[in-house]
Simulated assay, not measured.
Amino acid sequence: MSKRPYDGQQGSGYKNKKPRNGDSNQHRPYDNPPARYGDRQSNSSPGNLKADLERKAATDRRNYKVDHSEAVKQIPSNLAAQVPVHSFTPFTVPATLPPLPEILDPTLATAPFTHKSLTSYDRATSSSDITYERLEFLGDAYLEVIASRIIFHHFQELTAGSQSQVREVLVKNETLAEYARLYGFELRVKVADFEQMAADSAGKGNKGLNKILGDVFEAYIAAVILSDAENGFAVVEKWLTALWAPKLIDAANSHRYRSPGAILQHALGEDTRTIYDPTAKATLQKRIQSADAKLIYEPYQTMQELKGDQLGQNRHFIALYLTGYGFDRKCLGKGVGKNKVEAGNWAAVEAMHGEFKSVVDECEAKLGLVKEARRKAKEEEEAAKGLKEETK
């Protein structure tokens, strides 16, 4: 198929459309050409909505400083013995926003940006109409599959629950709307009455314009894949890998997504109180716990159920107390984690490297003296016992 650049006017045929009999939707401006996303329906001043959107989009792109090429280099290698979908690489990854892959089929070129309000739409009879709402259905499925593949094959140290959390960060409406704005999609969407849509979306947050732009982004993914049966999926997967790379690295490096058994590597000189140690509780126990000294881990705050991209996850709050060495329930540290084990380890990390590090060191020294005294006493006892056996 030949490539055809988007010109904003392809295939609308809008001016020749008339209301069907019984169409009660009288607010559609059938006598006027369709508005692109952001066009006003009335005479406008230089400060109109379209101009505002164009200025904001230009500013966002100018201020976008995320280095995608560097982030791609940090993505772990695919450790699975998996054959890639296709070896075709459509582009190299620049430091800035990765290039937008093209829709090769001219009949699909404007579909991701076409709202159903441009046609005399009837859900029962319009199965052949291609709008972004129809393409979004397929694009949403592709997006989930591609995100899952990338995370599963490149971040195998994450638990299944953490992998789901990272995927939610990648595919949520806020993320997709952010990318849609950076690529200027909000200036390409065509609706019958944008101002009415904007007014209807006002105050709805993630269910408003973010949802619309997220749908358009998903529709674009579907159109790219459908327009190139041989390479479309591979092109989109490589593009999204580069596009998601900064968020993937940030999410995967965040301790809230880490498996409790993960062994982490950190830069020399990094604050040890910020480094998660999955063996911290066991280490502290070996250092200072004895028959006369106890470490007690207890919740100091009610568990919280999280929302947003961590919906279904919990936040636990654990305090660590020491009884012994002359202390009675001395609080050595507090920790917060996605489960009690992780929160307890953070509390132990705080105890060993935080404000009361000197207390732990002192207790360890005392326990060392006690152990040394016991060792000498045992040696003396065994020596005396041996001497007694010799004299028999």
Rank of each mutant, 00 (worst) to 15 (best):
E355L: 09
A234Q: 03
T59E: 11
D292K: 14
R4N: 10
N63A: 11
A384T: 07
L367I: 05
E157Y: 14
G354W: 07
G308I: 04
E230S: 09
V236C: 09
T175E: 08
M1N: 10
S12D: 13
K378A: 10
N78R: 12
P94A: 01
H153Q: 14
P246C: 04
G333D: 08
S24G: 12
P98E: 00
K172S: 10
R315I: 05
D67R: 08
S290P: 05
N173D: 14
A222D: 06
E382H: 08
V171S: 05
R4A: 09
L306V: 04
E237L: 00
T89W: 01
V72N: 02
G184S: 08
D361K: 12
Q74W: 02
E379P: 02
N253V: 00
Y37L: 12
A219F: 02
T114Y: 10
L369R: 11
Y6S: 07
I318A: 07
A95I: 03
R4S: 10
A319K: 12
E390S: 11
Y37D: 07
S128E: 13
Y132A: 03
D271F: 04
Y37S: 11
H255A: 09
A35C: 15
A58L: 11
I75F: 05
G205K: 05
E237C: 00
G38E: 06
R55K: 15
T107K: 14
P5E: 09
V85R: 14
I296W: 01
K392F: 12
Y6W: 14
L118G: 05
I75E: 05
L158N: 06
T302A: 15
I130G: 00
V72I: 11
L170E: 05
G139T: 00
Q82F: 13
D122L: 07
R28D: 01
G161P: 03
L143K: 06
G161D: 15
H266V: 14
L226Y: 05
A71W: 02
C363P: 07
N206Q: 11
A245H: 03
S42T: 11
A71L: 02
T96C: 06
G22Q: 04
Q304F: 05
K18E: 11
S45G: 10
F194R: 02
N206L: 13
A251H: 03
L332W: 08
K371Q: 12
N43E: 13
K340V: 12
D200G: 02
N314M: 09
L264D: 13
T159F: 02
Q74E: 12
Y14H: 15
N48S: 11
L209E: 04
K388T: 10
C363Q: 07
A245R: 02
P98Y: 00
P99W: 01
P112H: 01
L187R: 04
L226K: 11
Y30L: 15
D31C: 08
S164H: 08
Q301C: 02
E174Y: 07
Y142K: 04
A222Q: 06
S358E: 15
F217G: 00
K190R: 14
L100A: 03
Y6T: 03
I151L: 04
L387R: 15
I225R: 08
K371A: 08
P278Q: 09
P112Q: 02
L53I: 11
A383P: 07
A373L: 10
I249M: 06
F137E: 10
L306P: 09
V66M: 09
T92S: 11
S148R: 11
F185S: 01
A293N: 07
D361A: 15
S290W: 03
